[in-house]
Design a protein around this nucleic acid. Sequence first.
DNA 1: CGTCAGGTAGCCA
DNA 2: TGGCTACCTGAC
Length: 283
Amino acid sequence: MVNIKLKKFNLEHTLECGQIFRINRLEEWYYVNAQNKFFKIRQNGNELEYHGVDKKFVTHFFSLNEDYSKILKKIDRDKYMREAIERYRGLRILRQDPWECLISFICSSASNIPRIKSILNVLSEDFGKQINLDKVCNYSFPIPGSINNYKKILSAKTGFRAKYIFETNKSMNIKTLNSFRTMTYKSAKDELKKLNGVGDKVADCVLLFSLGFNQAFPVDTWIKKVMQLLYFDNETVSNEKIRDYALNYFGDYAGYAQQLLFMFARNELRTPNRLKLWKEGKL
DNA sequence: CGTCAGGTAGCCA
DNA sequence: TGGCTACCTGAC
């Protein structure tokens, strides 16, 4: 059991903001597959209850040892961010396993969440190890080197991503991934982008969600829309320009700003019209 | 049936 | 650099 103020952590926002795919909600419990673990966790006010992992794991995995107030203070730059913070307060960046995160986001390109989930589950069933919790059967994410059957990868409905997964499985390992942690943001990103199937967006996701680069600012379609509207007078600008602007504007914790804005844009401003109305204060 | 979805590689100016 | 387009697949 962990006690943490609701204002400083929100399990639902943290797990449902798209940074992790292998989660399942069953009534008030979240069943989570991550880092070789299969555990369940729920939040009741200021209390976190969990089975299958210990306090040390939970504290680390959910970044509970980060100074949340300090982070919010740094990104709270304007009325837009303030509103995103108010609505999704308690959202934290997870500390995921870099390998699992890398493969997951390679799978995410030009896809959607249900499909990504399905691919990752099939890959785990085919190449991972069985783990049980409460008689619920599940599979750990396959370790580097073990996703080595191209036909099986393809039959997980990975499509054109199959070759990226197959190649990455051959060339990448945990040690190399971990060595990126001590590099500069730019060097680490360049290294990741050497992998086929890894571009700016996927690299930034891996850097932010698993390698500790809190300044990484993944630019996807939602972030692009909301950033253009709020900070570029609704003009079309390149992803690179958006990223540079965000890094400069939000600073060391730009990644937290990205997640909050992403949630806000995706959940509440689905249509461009709503987005515009919101900016004009008419929502 | 076309379009589109949390992108990227490859090609060309 | 900047601007295309094809790419697996499945849900509208």
